[in-house]
Design a protein around this nucleic acid. Structure first.
Lengths: 145, 145
DNA sequence: ATAGCTGCAAAGTCTTTGCATGTGT
DNA sequence: ACACATGCAAAGACTTTGCAGCTAT
């Protein structure tokens, strides 16, 4: 954890970006979770430590981390962010909204297009096993966060 | 084409949905393109034939087609829609926004989760070959539509 | 000192909805 | 007839941005 944070921090420094309080906490929150939090969830967590941080700042920093390659974004309304850059994919259920990590590699020929430093910015969409086996038209309770 | 439309129309009828002018044209436009149009693009095309159709109606019908399983949606701001339900995947470039079709199957174990009638509602995100080879930070001209 | 950040709030962008009016069946 | 659809415009949800005041370096 310490190492991870150091990495993130030095990565920022190396690019001439400042290590402000809000930014540091945002990075820590993002790296400290296995979930794929929304900006709002990150905001809530950050506020537990720095109560005056605004949602705007959270968005700005999240986008900055993505732009710098330090985090991945899962597009969509309620975009989710992920600091786990080890190559993996996300499966997003279009019905209940849950997100599952998928570790395996993709089959060629797409794998080639996904390798490299942006490899983690990937996603798969469909319906999760739970929703597929459920008959109702309504989605099951939406998973947090 | 005739068959395809008939299929779509009877599928709607079978569910007790009406075949109104706007709805018919929206379905035709969607089935008549290989691109992955946004709601706005569909709206423009529909208006060439029925000039009074509103964007709201286009959205309503697009969502209805997705809900009925007659079209797939690629989530995100500027959501894109696709009436090609043959199993395939979409690769979306996070920088320039282009979308490429990918025909191959996915590697296990995710493939299992994607098979079946919702198999087409899938997507891959990353950076397209063009953007990956380009050095600039700005995205190349956004591809139409 | 000073370029970069931040909080705040206002403005955007894309999408959904309410309501009165139309229209397939 | 009458339930379902539509057009219009207003409301929403989420995200971005302008600006004046802070703050790492």
């Amino acid at each position: 954890m310490r190492t991870i944070l150091k990495n993130g921090e030095s990565a920022l420094r190396a690019r001439g970006l400042r290590l402000t309080g809000p930014r540091k906490v945002i990075l820590e929150v993002l790296r400290g979770t296995e979930s794929h939090p929304t900006a709002e969830w990150v905001h809530r967590m950050v506020r537990r430590r720095l109560s005056r941080v605004s949602l705007g700042t959270v968005y700005r920093n999240l986008r900055l981390l993505v732009a710098e390659g330090l985090a991945a974004e899962i597009p969509g309304p309620h975009a989710r962010f992920d600091a786990n850059l080890a190559a993996h994919h996300h499966f997003t259920c279009l019905r209940c909204g849950c997100i599952l990590d998928v570790d395996g590699p993709l089959a060629e020929p797409h794998a080639a297009a996904l390798r490299g430093r942006v490899a983690a910015r990937t996603g798969l969409f469909g319906r999760c096993p739970r929703c597929r086996s459920s008959r109702s038209r309504r989605a099951p309770a939406r998973r947090a966060p």
